[in-house]
Write a protein that binds this DNA or RNA. Structure first.
Lengths: 343, 343
DNA sequence: TTGGGTGGCGAAAACGATTTCGGCTGACTT
DNA sequence: AAGTCAGCCGAAATCGTTTTCGCCACCCAA
């Protein structure tokens, strides 16, 4: 067990040349002879040399690490986003340091500071629902470290790009679809309206009603702090007793749509005959349930890819001291129509 | 935009003391006066000093980074594991660098090398299904970097701990349960039997049959390279035509169980009256489908936590040059009985 | 007064790679 | 023969912390 890792200096010594030459040979600099390069590369391979990225990072002040802060990993949407992030990062030679904030403001701050100390080259963030102070993020901008928000964002930080989906349009689409399928009394299960995301989905719901000449009825709206199946099921059981009865439901997440579907079924209601249901996000499970759930597709994977591409562009721009042009990308959602909203 | 981060030397200069003293003051060394400590901490806070972990890491040759290599992130089980890993890592002051191998051997090797270059303090791995050479992992052991396998493992590497579940017992439990509910002709949808995991689940299936005096019928076993809903649905449609008809199904993942459930239902079979179904992993969606799916719970979150705890213990032992005792933890599965296997 | 402690601090050497200056050949020009 | 230039390479500084010595002043005991 040879605990010591091979260093540049070890190669240099064995070859009787300087570390400078070894370094340049490995990097294929033009002013090193082909013969020397050959010898260096050969020995490096033989001894299994792996450059110490800490040392290189310290010297070049770059780490080739991208920091990522998200509220929750075990969530299909975020998992997809991470997949997209990692794919681009890998392609461009970056590593990913991941933190989950658990929707906890304090932890988000600690994570941000840790990533700053780690001198990540750039940061990708989906802001937690309860975050209202953003100074832990502006520190990155002060330090000249690019920062891109995705999914959840804030107007309070200006000097950075963002990649979001059009929650409003997606919700509008969903509710408009329900109405097109004949629904007139449409309930809405939302998340915490503290978050822009759910606020926007609520607005899309309202405006789709308005456009179709249907009055907004506040008693048909069910906000939920916890976005679980159980909570949705309870809402649904309550919903089933509303008079006049509902004939449509737009849930702000697929999980809640499915919980509600079960709740309504348990009350003897038929989907889609009695109540048509549509969710949001188009999770893997949406097409697995019975009946298959209509949903609004939220392109997490593409979101992760685009976010990372922008970030890396900004990292390069920063390094070359070019001006950075901040972008705001709004990805379009797509209506996926399945059994649960069939006429 | 003050691009420069504050350094130890900046604090030292402003206070008219040496960097050594500043460093010790911040670390609360006993041989620094209370007054000096106060002044240092005050200025550090005022100037927003963040230590450069690259430099510290280079000096101390530790990064406080844990590397993680898994086949796939957008998979509920792995997402749970990662959650567990990150929770313990955070608690112990470690960051997590995440790589997904995509079940691609070449990528797994590249990722491993990248993490080695990054000088992670330890590595957590779930081996890909197609990996048969493990030298990229033994490099870590040669370098004295602890390595813990979870879920998928190999007997070929000896000097490391592992945390796995008892796939055999879980499968046995599941099939035994089906038989207990009255099933006699039980089909099995498996994964690639190249992987130990699925091999073990198959063996559990076989032995449960044998124990109950039921002959093994190879035509009832459906191996699948791709573990998707669609593949399972196709298998199910074939299954529905088998004579004599099946009355039970054990699928090696919940996703496939659900796909099969839909396939069987579409052929007019009733669950659980005609065919009882049980899956494996107990995903979030298992209780959301109709009928709720029985499953074998696979404690991903606990697995992540335990794996990380072991790894961090080994990192500490390594640092203090104590002997490392390798552990092999086998977590027990738990049968979750729901509607889909009701008598 | 001298010797021994000790509390508080500083100088400087690490850690390993990169990079800025050059320096030294030998060939080629004028 | 002197000057020029390209081709190859090395010395040493550098990145920011940590840590090993050891210094100095002061106090106390002998």
């Amino acid at each position: 067990m040879s605990k010591k890792q091979i260093r540049l200096a070890d190669l240099a010594e064995k070859l009787g040349i300087s570390t400078a030459t070894v370094s340049r040979a490995l990097k294929d600099y033009p002013d090193i002879s082909a013969e020397t390069k050959r010898r260096v590369n050969e020995l490096a391979k033989e001894l299994n040399y792996r450059p110490n990225t800490l040392a290189a990072g310290l010297r070049k002040s770059e780490t080739r690490i991208i920091g990522v802060i998200i509220p929750e990993i075990a969530n299909h949407f975020f998992a997809k986003v991470i997949k997209g992030i990692m794919e681009v990062a890998y392609r461009e030679g970056y590593n990913v340091m991941l933190c989950q904030s658990d929707e906890d403001y304090e932890k988000e701050v600690v994570d941000a500071r840790a990533l700053l100390s780690s001198r990540v080259d750039g940061l990708i963030v989906s802001i937690g629902n309860h975050t209202h102070d953003f100074s832990h993020f502006s520190e990155f901008l002060h330090a000249g470290i690019p920062l891109v928000f995705f999914d959840k964002t804030t107007p309070e930080i200006e000097d950075c790009s963002q990649v979001i989906i059009d929650d409003y349009a997606g919700a509008f689409q969903a509710v408009d679809h329900l109405i097109g399928q004949g629904c007139r009394r449409i309930a809405h299960i939302g998340g915490s309206f503290e978050a822009f995301t759910f606020q926007n989905r609520l607005n899309g719901y309202k405006d789709a009603l308005k456009k179709n000449g249907i009055a907004f009825d506040p008693q048909l709206v069910f906000p939920s702090e916890k976005l679980t199946i159980q909570v949705a099921r309870e809402h649904a059981e309550h919903m089933a007793r509303i008079q006049p009865p509902i004939d449509g439901l737009f849930a702000a997440t697929d999980l809640m749509a499915i919980g509600a579907m079960n709740g309504l079924k348990s009350q003897g209601l038929k989907i889609p005959q009695d109540v048509k249901i549509i969710g949001f996000s188009n999770w893997e499970m949406a097409e697995a349930v019975d009946p298959p759930l209509s949903s609004v597709n939220q392109p997490g994977y593409e979101m992760g890819k685009i976010t990372t591409e922008i970030l890396i562009r900004e990292i390069k721009a920063e390094k070359e001291e070019r001006e950075i042009v901040y972008e705001k990308i709004v990805l379009q959602t797509e209506l996926i129509s399945r059994e649960s909203t069939r006429k």
